[in-house]
Simulated assay, not measured.
Amino acid sequence: MGGLAKGLRVIEAFTVETPRLSISEASAIAGLDRATTRRCLLTLAEHGYCAYDGKYFTVTPRVLRLGTGCLATMPLPRIVQPWLDALSEEIGQSTSVAILDEAEIVYVARAAQRKVMSIALMPGSRLPAYCTSMGRVLLAALPAETARNRLLAAPLPQRTPRTITEIDRLMSALERVRTEGYAVVDEEVELGLRSIAVPIVNARGATVAALNTGFPASSETMEKAQERFLDPLLHVRQELFRILN
Rank of each mutant, 00 (worst) to 15 (best):
I105G: 01
V106W: 02
V106Y: 02
A109C: 09
A109T: 03
R110K: 14
R110D: 11
A111R: 00
A111Q: 00
A112S: 15
Q113V: 09
R114H: 11
R114P: 04
K115F: 13
K115L: 13
V116C: 04
V116H: 05
M117I: 04
M117D: 07
M117S: 07
M117R: 05
M117W: 03
M117K: 09
A120S: 15
A120R: 14
A120E: 14
L121V: 13
L121C: 13
L121F: 07
P123R: 04
P123E: 04
G124Y: 02
S125T: 07
S125M: 03
L127N: 00
P128H: 12
P128W: 09
P128C: 11
Y130H: 05
C131W: 01
T132Q: 06
S133E: 09
M134W: 03
G135R: 00
R136P: 04
R136C: 09
R136W: 05
V137K: 02
L139H: 06
A141T: 05
P143L: 05
P143V: 13
P143E: 10
E145K: 13
T146K: 13
T146A: 10
L152Q: 13
A154H: 07
A154C: 12
P157V: 04
P157N: 09
T160A: 10
T160I: 07
R162Q: 11
R162Y: 12
T163M: 08
T163K: 03
I164Q: 10
T165V: 08
T165H: 02
E166D: 13
E166I: 08
I167E: 15
I167P: 11
D168S: 13
D168Y: 12
R169C: 15
R169V: 14
L174T: 03
L174Q: 02
E175K: 12
E175D: 13
E175G: 14
R176N: 14
R176Y: 11
V177P: 01
R178F: 06
T179D: 15
E180R: 02
G181V: 08
G181P: 02
Y182F: 10
A183H: 03
A183L: 11
D186S: 12
E187Q: 13
E187I: 11
E188T: 10
V189M: 04
E190I: 04
G192W: 08
G192H: 09
G192I: 10
L193D: 06
R194N: 10
S195N: 06
I196A: 01
I196C: 01
I196E: 01
A197D: 06
V198N: 03
P199M: 14
N202P: 07
N202T: 09
A203L: 05
G205F: 09
G205C: 08
A206T: 15
A206P: 10
V208P: 02
A209M: 13
A210G: 04
A210S: 05
A210T: 01
N212S: 07
N212Y: 00
